[in-house]
Design a binder for these strands. Structure first.
Length: 816
RNA sequence: GCGGAGAUGCCGGAGUGGUCAAACGGGCAAGAUUUAGGCUCUUGUGGCUUAGUGCCUACCUAGGUUCGAAUCCUAGUCUCCGCACCA
């Protein structure tokens, strides 16, 4: 049969959509299951193969859970605010809204072509005021609660994006979107969300999540909790005290070994420490480290310059010099560290370079060559001598606390989330600056603050030049006010979109609490690992913040996270246009069909491991589907034999487990195996169950064949088969193996002795019937005529007395 | 530097104490079908050996545990990924 998959796939996609069979049910008594993929940024490029992989994984899960009887919510939406649309607007002169809408329409078309079972009635797009007004509401609530605040800060500025970026968006000093662009540091008034408020909870709750280990570890490292001690050092400049400066250390046990201090070269108060004599030298140094590129900076040695000031060690009262250094992070701890060259490699290198004293305070190692960072007993530490250094950490901290010179402290690497962006295509921050009242939040009743449509692009932030939009009355005093022109980071949009899906049309509130509490949290969330420290962390923060504001009751947004692997090009490199190795999913769908594409994507490897595209796998998958169609053309419906029933039920059991645990590649192997064992004649029930097992992977072809064998319902809504343990008979498999072995033996002998016409098979009397049933198969696979005798058959033909060797499941053979 | 993942046949990739010369797919070879090709089907695909057998060498390298290891332990090599001067 010529199977026109294009036509058939379109037919079923249309049917599914018209009958709305994938809509999540309202007020259902069923248990819910919420499957979600990370929503895409709708670029003009359309769907790429990574999307196809992502959505196929999710669709299989959604279809599987639906068939298992869950009330499934499986929605799709678009993360449609953001720089690329705005940049496209500048480049080609289209309004971002137009560009975005067009891209979304294209995405939807392509996603439908993949046969994804989304509930399209739940769709959302974050650039709609109906959506982003709730960003604004949440912002106001955060502000009220002190979770949003404004401060002047050193921020990361990307000159290409023309905006500020969050720490998470800066990699190796480069912009996430412009990998060749250096981030500049600027001091600006910006809006922040207090993610640090939840640092501890964000860290603690990671362990309970069903997430991939590596993502958990990445988040933990990002939050970066460390226990240590804050110690006060008095700073002396020109014999005058500048008061006490705190420093953070995890090694209070080495305090007696402090021989100098280092303050970050980027420290905002650095110049306060610098004496007149040293001013020129320090400024030269600052200029020097500014002039080197980020890359050089990375490879650069530890360098510094004496500030002219000194610090007093609170325990020894020693006076040690304070240096400014390029290796101290300005906004971690207090931006200043105590340096113990004997026991810290960085300090060691610095001390060697500037000829500073090195004082050993822990016994062990050879500190002539490098710092000793191991364990040991304290020396040169006055009354703490002889104590093991781990113990000394406690004792010294306790002592400092008693003297009021320091305290235990927990320090996190996590910073507050900078959400201000100096760009147009984002959610306006609902704030008005009044000449009299200062910062005034836009009253909730005035929400949404809509983005003005008519703006001029290309000259910085288009909102800044839109006088009509900017100038408003102060909501408090009615006086002259100006709108905040910054918009929110798009990660705000994606921090709660999954809460909106179930109640996406609500115009009174972000979501109905009852509806929300039925569907959320998300049961399975599927996406790439690149969001480990951004989106996934922000979403967790948002969830906790909304919980504390009373919007929701759960603590975590995503119970289970599944990371798909990277699909590389056939040459093993990343797919990229410049390399010309891109596989376009739409091309495959056109030529081989969506089912073949889906099957291929799931066949490469376990969906969470990295792989490369391989055309041969596509051809193999395509061929397999053709064989299935051929088979259904020819199969005779009747009674199923016990062997097939056994194999089927065993397969059901295994495949169900494998799909549940995302081992889709293994499930496909089992499905192929099951298919290969299907006889020419079998029952409708067997065929139906086979189709059901294949259905999540290849929904169209199975829907088609389901109807072809006489069903009127949708296989998509059918019940997942349950294995009947009673029908599984392992001994049948042994027989199967024995038969297989027999055929191989015959062929082997055939090869050894050359051409023969006939094979005589001698079996135990109780096995004779079974082998008689397989005569056709043996004939087919050996190309010989066959005679089967039981060993006790009187008139058997057995010239070499081969029947003497016969054992159970081990027939004797003679060829002639 | 720190942290994580991995290394299996010609290739992709299963397998995680015995039933393993190792699933499934691909490639390749031979045969059947065919006017031919494609499709489809059958067989073979570490080495030697044998009327269906037996043996040897194999799952990165080197050791070890065990009656027995691709599978567990130790050390090392290589590859990929994440963080990167966080005191």
């Amino acid at each position: 049969m010529a199977y026109n998959f294009n036509q058939i796939e379109k037919k079923w996609q249309k049917e599914w959509e018209e009958k709305k069979i994938f809509c999540a049910k309202k007020n259902s008594k069923k248990k819910k299951f919420y499957v979600l993929e990370m929503f895409p940024y709708p670029s003009g490029e359309g769907l790429h193969i990574g999307h196809a992989l992502n959505y196929t994984i999710g669709d299989i899960r959604a279809r599987f859970k639906r068939m298992l009887g869950f009330n499934v919510l499986y929605p799709m939406g678009y993360d449609s605010f953001g720089l690329p649309a705005e940049n496209a607007a500048i480049r080609v002169g289209v309004h971002p809204e137009k560009y975005t809408k067009k891209s979304i329409a294209n995405f939807i078309k392509q996603q439908k072509a993949l046969g994804l079972s989304y509930d399209w009635s739940k769709m959302l797009s974050t650039c709609e005021p109906e959506y982003y007004r709730w960003n604004q509401l949440f912002f106001l609530k955060f502000l009220e609660k002190g979770l949003a605040y404004r401060k002047k800060a050193a921020v990361n500025w990307c000159p290409k994006c023309n905006t500020v970026l969050a720490n998470e968006q800066v990699h190796n000093g480069k912009c996430e979107y412009h990998k060749d662009t250096e981030i500049e540091i600027r001091y600006l008034e910006q809006w922040f969300l207090k993610t640090t408020e939840y640092a501890e909870e964000l860290l603690e709750m990671i362990d309970d999540l069903n997430w991939p280990q590596r993502i958990k570890i990445m988040q933990k490292n990002w939050i970066g909790k460390s226990h240590g001690t804050e110690i006060e050092f008095e700073i002396i400049k020109n014999d005058e005290s500048l008061g006490k400066w705190p420093i953070f250390t995890t090694r209070p046990d080495t305090i007696f070994g402090v021989t100098f201090m280092v303050v970050s070269a980027q420290h905002p108060q650095l110049m306060e420490l610098v004496t007149d004599e040293q001013e020129k030298e320090v400024k030269d140094f600052l200029r020097k480290i500014k002039s080197v590129s980020e890359k050089e900076l990375e490879e650069m040695e530890k360098e510094g310059v004496f500030t002219g000031s000194y610090a007093i060690n609170p325990l020894t009262n020693e006076k040690v010099p304070v240096y400014a250094g390029n290796f101290v992070v300005a906004d971690y701890g207090s931006g200043m560290v105590m340096a113990v060259p004997a026991h810290d490699q960085r300090d060691f290198e610095f001390a060697k370079k500037y000829n500073l004293k090195i004082k050993q305070v822990i016994a062990g190692g050879d500190i002539k060559q490098k710092a000793y960072t191991g364990q040991g007993k304290l020396i040169n530490s006055e009354k703490f001598n002889g104590i093991n250094n781990e113990k000394a950490k406690q004792k010294i901290t306790k002592y400092l606390e008693e003297k009021g010179l320091g305290k235990r402290k927990v320090q996190y690497k996590l910073r507050d989330w900078l959400i201000s962006r100096q760009r147009y295509w984002g959610t306006p921050i609902p704030i008005i600056y009044c000449e009299k009242c200062g910062i005034v939040p836009v009253p909730e009743k005035d929400l949404p603050v809509k983005l003005p449509k008519k703006v001029e692009f290309g000259k910085g932030n288009p909102l800044e030049t839109n006088e009509k939009w900017i100038n408003v009355k102060c909501p408090k005093c009615g006086g002259k006010g100006r709108r905040e022109t910054d918009t929110m980071d798009t990660f705000v949009d994606s921090s709660w979109y999954y809460m909106r899906y179930p109640d996406n049309k609500n115009s009174k509130e972000p979501f109905d609490k009852k509806i929300g509490s039925y569907w959320l949290p998300v049961d399975t969330y599927i996406g790439g690992a690149e969001h480990a420290t951004m989106h996934l962390l922000y979403a967790r923060f948002w969830t906790k913040a909304l919980r504390d504001l009373g919007f929701i009751k759960y603590d975590e947004p995503f119970i289970q996270l599944f990371n798909q692997g990277m699909l590389h090009a056939a040459d093993g490199r990343k797919m990229s246009k410049s390399l010309g190795n891109v596989i376009n999913p739409l091309d495959i769908i056109d030529k081989q069909g969506a089912d073949a594409l889906r099957l291929t994507l799931m066949s490469f490897a376990s969906p969470d491991s990295d792989t490369s595209w391989d055309d041969k796998v596509l051809q193999g998958s395509s061929k397999f589907l053709k064989r299935i169609i051929n088979y259904f053309e020819k199969v005779k419906i009747g009674k199923a034999d016990v062997k097939t029933e056994s194999k089927l039920n065993k397969s059901i059991k295994e495949i169900t487990n494998q799909i549940e645990s995302f081992k889709y590649n293994l499930a496909i192997i089992k499905i192929r195996d099951l298919f290969n064992s299907l006889p020419e004649k079998t029952s409708k029930d067997v065929l139906e169950k086979f189709l059901k097992l294949l259905h999540p992977f290849c929904p169209h072809i199975t829907e088609e064949l389901w109807h072809k064998i006489g069903n009127k319902t949708f296989i998509s809504l059918e019940k997942w088969p349950v294995a009947d343990e009673k029908k599984i008979d392992e001994s049948l498999e042994k027989q199967e193996e024995a038969l297989d072995k027999l055929i191989r033996d015959i062929n082997n002998v055939l090869k050894l002795v050359g051409e023969k016409k006939k094979v005589f098979v001698y079996v135990l009397p109780n096995e004779k019937e079974m082998y008689l049933n397989e005569v056709d198969l043996i004939k087919k696979r050996t190309g010989l005529d066959i005679m089967i005798y039981a060993v006790n058959d009187k008139n058997k033909y057995d010239p070499e007395n081969k029947s003497k060797k016969v054992k159970p499941n081990r027939p004797g053979i003679y060829l002639e």
